[in-house]
């Protein structure tokens, strides 16, 4: 099919975009369009107005200040993936970005667009939760920040008022020498993950684990932190048995069910991927065998 009729707006400043958003009824923001365009073509979305953010000045770009990376909402996924700082210092993000869709969709798809679309299986939603990102939002009452962990209110529902838009993502740079692994299972390369596991580990000089972050994507409407397993790992000596034990806790999660994938299958995937990601993250620690 073809997209339904709508009125097209191409603001050039953030102020123009916000004022359009505040004054128009049934308006949709168009970022990279890698989700909205198919939704229009399949007639899942019928906006009266499409507000194209691609010509808004200043919404794209990556800047590093101290130990924070600021990623403009309209930054293309490909540009973040290619960024040397991401490649060198935030391996979890680099691994997750490489799994998003395909080269052609990463060239156009944006960071903010994927986060606001908030597909439960989207790599960016899960990895930004794991990394403790902060979402920068602009609205008629000025800017506000919200923690990524609080950004999803429910299934595909971001914490955004109808007159607000995301302007950037702030990422704390993880400590040097941490271990990271982002793994997912999908039926074909580039498909949405059925389940994804993001793991970050830090280690004391004694060899004990200092801290573990485990985030599962695709299992429920919003990313799931495996807090029990994280608590089990903290302070322990990393061994294959310990990782197996921690991953076992993924069997207890609430997993969603759909026409193709039963909940028990997602739980089993969560367990396997958690164990593999823990192992891989441990192996990526400096000095690990």
């Amino acid at each position: 099919m073809k997209p339904p009729d709508f009125t097209y707006h191409a603001p050039e400043t953030l102020e123009q975009a916000l004022s359009l958003l505040a004054s128009l009824d049934n308006a949709r923001l168009l970022a990279g369009g890698q989700s909205l365009m198919p939704m229009l073509t399949m007639r899942f979305a019928f906006p009266d107005h499409v507000i194209d953010l691609n010509r808004v000045a200043g919404l794209a770009g990556i800047t590093q200040t101290g130990d924070t990376l600021r990623i403009g909402a309209m930054t293309r996924q490909r540009d973040l993936l290619d960024h040397p700082f991401v490649q060198q210092k935030i391996p979890l993000l680099a691994q997750a970005l490489a799994l998003i869709g395909h080269r052609q969709t990463r060239n156009r798809g944006t960071i903010g667009g994927s986060l606001c679309h908030l597909d439960p299986a989207a790599e960016l939603v899960s990895v930004m939760t794991a990394l403790g990102a902060t979402i920068e939002i602009a609205g008629p009452n000025g800017p506000r920040d919200v923690a990524m962990a609080d950004f999803p209110l429910g299934y595909m529902t971001p914490s955004l008022a109808p007159d607000e838009l995301v302007t950037a993502v702030h990422l704390p740079v993880p400590p040097p020498g941490h271990g990271a692994s982002f793994l997912e299972f999908s039926r074909r390369h580039g498909d949405f993950a059925i389940v994804s596991a993001a793991v970050m580990l830090t280690r004391h000089s004694s060899g004990h684990l200092a801290d573990a972050v485990i985030t599962l994507g695709g299992v429920g409407p919003v990313p799931l932190r495996l807090a029990k397993a994280e608590a089990l790992l903290a302070g322990q000596t990393p061994t294959p048995d310990l990782f197996t034990q921690a991953a076992c806790l993924a069997r207890e999660i609430d997993a969603m069910e759909d026409a193709q994938i039963p909940a028990w299958y997602r739980r089993r995937l969560a367990e396997s991927l958690t164990r593999r990601a823990l192992t891989a993250a441990h192996q990526s620690l400096p000095g690990a065998a």
Partner: peptide, 24 residues
């Protein structure tokens, strides 16, 4: 497919490969 799945409509926009069906 006209929905970004098949890749047949891929073109280069400013040198980068993109789906022509996913752009206005």
């Amino acid at each position: 497919c006209e929905t970004g799945l098949c890749g047949a409509c891929t073109i280069l926009v400013d040198g980068r490969a993109m789906r022509a069906c996913l752009m206005l």
